[in-house]
């Protein structure tokens, strides 16, 4: 008899351990749910962590108002299936209340405004730990992120002064008003996520699979044609129908789509294994500067 776990089982076990640590160490945790594959994986792992009990914390969705409509439908079905409570933080509301000002121009996106809506939702709910599906392989600033990531009373991240993390001991101690962001799937790669979702037969939004869509090209990225983006005249004329799929799902204004014929999860695994571009390569929000992700994270972004 050999006592060896395969790598997906070991990653699963590590993530479940961290999710249970959050439920034990914090009074009011919340799981940030975007409708993307990483947060779907997070919900799946949370169900496993507390089985046969229900997930003992709510899901929080920050709605930019510029979502793919499929995302919202899928979110609502998922919530119904798990029996978890859903809390929605709205960027539109934050704009209406004057908390933030909408960006203008061709590259206007509500991505940056999400931070304000997120911090407000966390404060209103008095949440002391927000679980997220961030992974270290996604982006270079995220490669330095801890599993238990401390945030000061302004929700800010101080990357130069992080707590060392050793063995499987996690220090979630904090002062009143501070909170933690917790990333249980830090050690998973995009390929791990897909292999695991295939193995577990987890249901996924259709956006991930090849479908026909009206798209246009901007700065080398294919964007879905939608009412939320103002197009330049040459973009208007070059808009065409293509077979595409999403590698990440976010706000429609900054989520690039990829030309792809991958219709099943097995096709996707083959595609990802052979991919020569990172999944966030299509995220216009990361391309604003060399340290766009770090800058947003310091402010309190996901």
């Amino acid at each position: 008899m050999s006592y060896n776990l395969n790598h997906l089982k070991e990653l699963e076990s590590e993530s479940i351990y961290i999710i249970r640590e959050v439920a034990s160490q914090f009074e009011r945790p919340v799981l940030m749910f975007s409708g993307g594959k990483d947060s779907i994986l997070m919900v799946h792992l949370a169900m496993k962590a507390f089985y046969p009990a229900k997930i003992p914390f709510p899901l929080l969705h920050i709605d930019t108002g510029h979502n793919f409509p499929e995302t919202i439908e899928f979110r609502d079905r998922m919530v119904e299936k798990t029996g978890a409570k859903l809390i929605v933080g709205s960027v539109q509301e934050a704009i209406d209340k004057g908390l933030v000002v909408e960006e203008k121009g061709f590259n206007a996106s509500r991505n940056y405004l999400q931070t304000a809506a997120l911090l407000e939702a966390l404060e209103n709910g008095k949440y002391d730990a927000a679980l997220g599906g961030g992974r270290r392989d996604e982006e270079k600033a995220r490669a330095k992120e801890r599993f238990f990531s401390h945030r000061d009373e302004f929700g800010q991240w101080d990357p130069k002064n992080q707590r060392p993390e050793l063995w499987n001991i996690f220090n979630g101690k904090k002062h009143f008003g501070e909170h933690f962001r917790v990333f249980p799937i830090s050690n998973w790669t995009e390929l791990d996520v897909w292999m695991y979702l295939a193995q577990e037969k987890v249901e996924l939004p259709n956006l991930y699979f090849a479908h026909q869509r009206q798209v246009f090209e901007r700065d080398g990225i294919l964007l879905a044609d939608c009412e939320y983006i103002s197009k330049r005249p040459e973009e208007e004329s070059s808009t065409k129908t293509m077979t595409v799929r999403c590698r990440t799902i976010g706000d429609m204004t900054c989520t690039g789509v990829w030309e792809s014929e991958a219709a099943t999860i097995e096709d996707i695994i083959k595609e990802v294994a052979a991919a020569r571009q990172t999944e966030r390569g299509g995220r216009a929000d990361d391309k604003r500067s060399e340290t766009a992700m770090e800058d947003r994270k310091k402010q309190g972004y996901f």
Binding site: K144, P159, K160, E290, D295
Partner: peptide, 16 residues
Amino acid sequence: GLKAEREQGITIDVAY
């Protein structure tokens, strides 16, 4: 990946 690291040409933290 961190701004300070790139500016100073040093590694500050454990990178995975």
